[in-house]
Design a protein around this nucleic acid. Sequence first.
DNA 1: CCTTACTATATGATATTTACATATATGTGC
DNA 2: GCACATATATGTAAATATCATATAGTAAGG
Lengths: 127, 127
Amino acid sequence: MIFTYMCRTCGCSFRARDFGNVERFIEPCILLLLLRGSSYGYGLMEGLEKHCGEKVDIGNLYRTLRRMEADGWVKSEWGKNKVGPDRRIYTITKNGREFLEVAALSLIRTDKLIHRFLEGFQKSKSA
Amino acid sequence: MIFTYMCRTCGCSFRARDFGNVERFIEPCILLLLLRGSSYGYGLMEGLEKHCGEKVDIGNLYRTLRRMEADGWVKSEWGKNKVGPDRRIYTITKNGREFLEVAALSLIRTDKLIHRFLEGFQKSKSA
DNA sequence: CCTTACTATATGATATTTACATATATGTGC
DNA sequence: GCACATATATGTAAATATCATATAGTAAGG
């Protein structure tokens, strides 16, 4: 079945998009990847899609990395690239590692909420 | 430890807020509650806080209910209230029940992503 | 009657996050 | 020179969340 929504501004109808996205889930995913070794925006994409199941918007990824640097979770420096354009190499910071711990705790809490919902949902089916 | 963020507009520092919220999680939670019986905005609050672990913003709740009605997941009508202001009573629709099924599937997918992340995170700790 | 409080719905304004499009530049293969 | 993959970045708009405020019915206390 196809679900349609009403456009909030013009009233037109459009198909339902993905539901259940976790806000800024990409940030802890990035930090987890950087824990294994420093990397750069474009190079992180494959890892994000594989290990975090993200359909990554590359523009959003770059902006997120710059924001994370402003927040102090990562730091960056330009690295020379022989076979293509230079890369901005990101490295996780001590603050970033600590934030990763906190984010993991929050995600455990989120996981519990989802489980509680799914349990209630299953019960409603069996009743 | 207290995490601080930079304000995106003025550059000031502020404490990190909750992380890991699921987008529009309140919608399937509302539908699950309405499955048990019709209810109204103010009355749904307690159930939402108890069963869905939501810290409910009442303004957001009312706006969400109106949006869900526009989307066709619920329908409403005014009900007389002897002991206070009248209530707008919401009832789940057939479309709403079907959307609840789809939302549950999406939440299962979200749950898997979180698990994959947490597994990777645990591995990084034991290594 | 007046004030306070709880119930009940609703909206204004703003902040935050995400999505889609586009700009710019380097190096490779043809 | 041209198309293509790599690489970073920003402009704009849409969607969502947050915080504050407006309005009104009823009940209790003074």
